[in-house]
């Protein structure tokens, strides 16, 4: 009764508006304002040479980006980067989560070690792996040669055929823990009665996996996959640290190109236009993704 009255009080005094202000302010300054500002800049010629007097140039920045002969390749690279990274991160993450679902000796320590990459900065990981995979004095080549698997070192990052594979490999290594953590939490929330019932019905491991585990954690899978696709698309750190999009554009993706435009060309207008294109692609994708899933019994 007391609680109800307090609630009424708040509603009548319009206090609730005041209470919402911090949240709105935060969202406005951290998300909305930068987005709108980026949108405005993308229609301006704004480089380091005219930071104080930008001028509007219509769709020119967008035209420059879309008419770049390298743009289709950028799109394709971005697609390959996301598709391979997320698929393998998910598969290995799921396997890891299933392995970790049952208690065993030293599980805590093991989990700590396995989840460790997730705590590192992407750029640091890029630098670290660029030395490991170095084609001349990298330890990976050294080990492969000593094992007799290779005769001459592979240019993991300098050979166009391997460069994309290498950066994806590192991204998979980095992203597995995220899926493992999220899926493990979902798996642990499955009531054990379901498994007991399945056991009684004589279900084997795969039967239990496909009929109990996966259906139960499906909402988690849908939302984590969507999140990861967005994050991986916006994640230039590893590639930037390892190859800066090279050699000769072989690993260049949209978000890396955006950084290159800022760092090399100092052209903030052009970079913003690319940023808006990335946002548009992701928005369209997310809408379709959610629409398709909503037809199934998707709940977030």
């Amino acid at each position: 009764m007391e609680e109800g009255r307090a609630c009424e009080e708040v509603k009548r005094s319009k206090l609730w508006i005041l209470m919402l202000v911090p949240t709105f302010a935060l969202v406005f300054f951290v998300n909305l304002y930068p987005l709108v500002r980026g949108g405005v800049i993308s229609f301006q010629r704004l480089t380091v040479f005219n930071l104080n007097n930008p001028r509007f140039i219509g769709w020119n920045n967008y035209r420059t980006i879309l008419s770049d002969p390298a743009f289709p390749r950028l799109l394709w690279n971005t697609f390959v980067w996301i598709a391979c990274s997320v698929t393998f991160q998910f598969l290995f993450g799921l396997i890891l989560a299933l392995l970790l679902a049952k208690p065993f000796f030293g599980r805590g320590l093991y989990m700590g070690l396995v989840f460790y990459p997730w705590a590192l900065s992407g750029f640091a990981i890029g630098l670290l792996w660029s030395w490991l995979l170095n084609g001349q004095f990298g330890i990976v080549n050294d080990v492969l040669i000593r094992l007799g698997l290779l005769r001459t070192p592979i240019g993991f990052l300098s050979d166009e055929r391997f460069a994309m594979f290498s950066v994806i490999l590192v991204n998979v290594w980095y992203g597995i823990p995220f899926f493992a953590i999220m899926l493990l939490a979902a798996i642990q929330s499955i009531p054990s009665e379901l498994y007991e019932a399945a056991q009684i019905d004589g279900a084997g491991f795969f039967r239990k996996l496909f009929s109990v585990t996966l259906p139960y954690i499906r909402p988690t899978i849908y939302s984590t996959v969507l999140l990861r696709i967005i994050w991986v698309m916006n994640f230039p750190d590893i590639i930037y640290g390892m190859t800066r999009g090279g050699p000769a554009g072989a690993t260049n993706i949209l978000s890396v190109q955006m950084i290159n435009i800022v760092y090399y060309r100092n052209n903030f207008g052009l970079a913003s236009a690319l940023g808006m294109i990335i946002t548009a692609i992701l928005t369209i994708f997310a809408v379709i993704y959610l629409a398709v899933l909503e037809r199934g019994e998707f709940e977030l």
Binding site: G135, Q136, G155, S158, T243, G246, P247
Partner: peptide
């Protein structure tokens, strides 16, 4: 080395020192 197409300052110094 073929790999040097991906070399920056650090790799250069490393290859020289070794």
């Amino acid at each position: 080395p073929k790999d040097s197409i991906n070399w920056g300052f650090d790799e250069q110094v490393n290859a020289f020192a070794s």
